[in-house]
Nucleic acid binder design. Sequence first.
RNA 1: GGCGAGGUAGCUCAGUAGGUUAGAGCAACGGAAUCAUAAUCCGUGUGUCGUGGGUUCGAAUCCCUCCCUCGCUACCA
Length: 681
Amino acid sequence: MNTEKIIVTAALPYANGAIHLGHLAGAYLPADIYVRFQRLRGKDIIFICGSDEHGVPITITADKEKVSPQVIIDRYHEINKISFEKFGMSFDIYGRTSSKVHHETAKEFFLNFYNQGLFSEKKTMQFYDNKANMFLPDRYVEGTCPNCNTDGARSDECENCGALYNPSELKNPISKISGEKPELKETSHWFIPLNKFQDRLQEYINDRNLRFNWKENVLQYCKGWFHDGLQERAITRDLDWGVKVPLENADHKVLYVWFEAVLGYISATKELFSHRGQDSSWREYWQGENTRYIAFIGKDNIVFHAIIFPAMLMAWNDGNKDKYILPENVPANEFLNFEGRKFSKSRNWGIDVLEFLNHFEADSLRYTLALNLPELRDSDFSWNDFQARHNNELADILGNFVNRTMTFVHKHFEGKVPQLGKLSERDVEMIDILNGYPVKIATLIEKYKLKDATLEVMNLARLSNKYFNDSEPWKTLKSDKEQCGTSLNISLQAIYTLAGLFLPVIPFTSQKIFRMVNSRPVEWENMGKSNLVEGHQLGEPVILFKKVENEMIEEIRLKTANAESDVKKEPESELITIDDFSKVQLRIAEILSAERVKKSDKLIKLIVDTGSGKRQVIAGIGKSYSPEELPGKKVVIVANLKPAKLMGEESQGMVLAVENEQGILNVVEVDSSISNGTKVK
RNA sequence: GGCGAGGUAGCUCAGUAGGUUAGAGCAACGGAAUCAUAAUCCGUGUGUCGUGGGUUCGAAUCCCUCCCUCGCUACCA
């Protein structure tokens, strides 16, 4: 009979930046806690992750730095791999999608689907940027809508009027990459008909939800997709960076990254077993009937893991004898904020994992994040909370309990586990509590209630302190040494249980405790039993957590605050020539009248005098100004901006304004003596 | 504006198949103890459950209005 196997995957981080605390709380820490727990239960489990290394953003970063994409992915693959190691992620393998085995796996899937006749091939005219030497994705081309004449329309659809058209119909196309006029070239792409899988996907999700109780946020998300109806989706694109399309006449075409990245879980598993010298063993997991597959992700990834990946596996299973298993559950978390605001790479808001771990222990972070996981909604990380959790709970409650017990035993019992004597009611009660705890915690973890699980284990430390207090061993030491020994024996068993149950959350600390009691973890179910035998020699006590002082918090708080202003000082923008600048005509104009644009919360319709006449300008300043205070102001406008329609109103120019940290806009004004139409140089 | 999520104790968050006095951790206040990292333990909450209405014997929980926040998105910054 097949023993049950478990695959756990954590979302593949994109190798275009360093992971931050939000990523950890969203997917990685929950996955690691779950995996470590299942390992302690003796389960046959593999834990898979790796870098997602293809796609346009990586090539853009590479271009900016004038290096090859390989340099970028090598850099972030290394950074993230090391970050995860230091954070204590216990992946069995951390692969990468640039690996040979991944390219082969992805091509295999593509060819298999291709040969099944699953794809439809569509020829389209696509814009090509001769300067950048690449086909342009739709969102990188802007032009004027052939239907409503609005600027800013994409190459295939206008978001203003909703019209769909062929790229050849778009007027005045401009490449957003080079700013040049792109040329139309014919190209063809393959599409996967997700719509054909919708019914089965709905059934699948419904079934797994009934059996495994999916999270509400995941179900809601899927419902939205199903409601809109799944569409055919292109799985190839014109690019040189990625997995080459394995067909004749498909030069310069790669698999779309969303199609191949999820297959990285499978290819990384192949690599894992190949290292172990068991080349075909990966099938026992991915194609084993008795395998449970759980995919940990953040909410941004729900569609790929709950809909697209299952659809791909279904498609494979339809046409082949070997059948892949589908995810049993996709426990996606929401997002973690940082001091009340969203993590933002571009604004440099937040903190990288490596930076954090240069200042503090991984377990302090793991514990804090675990108690604050965004399991049901976005949650917040704050320095004050971090400090409080570390000091009041890890150091004071857990650390001090271990320390007071250990030092007591060393002082009065030669560092050996005292005998368990006659049991009082209180002793029996404490032993029962310890016995019951592993199941209690296991139940929570199985339901992915990791926050509650963590809180409950800390509650055991509280109960242990209470037991120690109520037993008053410092008194019984003189009055009844046997009873004193009994109290200490039970307290030591509590330490052992805490070390075991806390292992998934704070593994480094658990190891320290096990070393201190000179022992090793047993299987989860037995963790609450009397595992330290009488007379067993204990190791030396060490302080588990030193207090985090205010200065340490202030220091790092300042550092992260500075990081934000650094970016403002050095905005990433290309240098322009004086000629480029002279293309922009800035002129002084006087606001004659102002009124709100109907149904818009921030647009205000202005009539301005530009010296040579009146014109209408729509400005997005409605949240910062009321129409009454605007007339009379002399402002700076871009006079030669191509007209655009906004909310049905034509705008013939643009008012310059600055935005402060609260998002309040301030229009640039000049002295009232300046006459209308004056050119700004 | 559209779509989605959310507004519960000072802070971070639980709690909805509607039902006795709305919870946890932290903080705060009072007390006990002194083995221990000035640590621990006990006790203490008059919270408009965002607002206003509705359904109901009964609503944080269901329905509607409105306000606010966040994310995605369209909005000329």
